[in-house]
């Protein structure tokens, strides 16, 4: 059982959003609380609730001050913010809150190096390793998806081995191919769409991360655990029929 009231603080971000701050730093215990609160809000939405966006140690709750106001006219002079804050606190004050857990493991096939991962050599030499050691380290860890942001389906993950940490490129690339797997500092991530970016690109996955025609529209969800599986370029083109080696 979780005592959420002791760990949270509520503050406004705007006149239509509040932030529920949950602890400090990036860690799994905080992440579990964030997911639990998200689940509580989504299964017990107050009138005027629009959506909640989880991050490492906070959730941002979007609401309509208009709907909150018009559905609480009996509350007199209370502002929509005060009403929303009270409703969230009441929700957190239930005695029978159980943790929301997720044990899903998603395997992400990756072609490392070559044209698919033009920065693999740099990441290796920067850390005094061989490219195959980088691949081994990168693909032998389990990563936790803390949140999605930056682009649809882009996972902010934790758990990368510090041995392969590498700073961002000094000048960002103008276009990074969808599916590119990169390293920036001590983080690793996957680009769902073609975007400019400064991450060191070590490989590419044929898996699609953004699936607008599906619900939910992303391959990964907060709380998923990810395993990267090295594949050959032949597997990439054979299994997915994509011609990418030019």
């Amino acid at each position: 059982m979780l005592n959420l009231l002791e760990t949270i603080q509520i503050r406004p971000l705007s006149d239509s959003t509040v932030v529920i701050q949950v602890g400090e730093g990036i860690n799994e215990a905080t992440h579990t609380k964030v997911k639990t609160i998200l689940n509580l809000l989504e299964t017990n939405p107050f009138s005027g609730f629009i959506e909640a966006v989880p991050a490492y140690n906070s959730l941002t709750v979007y609401y309509s001050p208009i709907d909150v106001y018009f559905s609480n006219l009996d509350k007199g002079v209370q502002t929509p913010y005060e009403i929303v804050k009270a409703k969230i606190l009441a929700l957190m004050n239930q005695s029978n809150i159980t943790e929301t857990t997720n044990n899903r493991i998603v395997k992400i096939p990756v072609v490392y190096g070559g044209d698919m991962g033009p920065d693999l050599e740099f990441v290796a030499s920067y850390n005094g390793l061989t490219p195959s050691e980088v691949i081994k380290i990168h693909s032998s860890t389990e990563y936790l998806v803390y949140m999605l942001g930056f682009a649809p389906g882009f996972p902010f993950m934790g758990g990368m081995d510090a041995q392969i940490a590498t700073p961002r490129k000094e000048s960002p690339r103008l276009a990074i191919a969808p599916g590119s797997v990169g390293i920036a500092g001590s983080q690793t991530g996957i680009y769902p769409l073609e975007t400019p970016g400064g991450w060191q690109i070590i490989g590419r996955t044929p898996s699609r991360l953004f699936l607008p025609e599906q619900s939910p529209p992303t391959l990964l969800q907060p709380g998923d655990r990810i395993q990267f599986v090295p594949i050959s370029l032949d597997d990439y083109t054979k299994d997915f029929g994509v011609k990418t080696w030019e």
Partner: peptide, 10 residues
Amino acid sequence: LLSEGVTFGT
């Protein structure tokens, strides 16, 4: 600052 939600007008 850790990444967190932002909105229109931030």
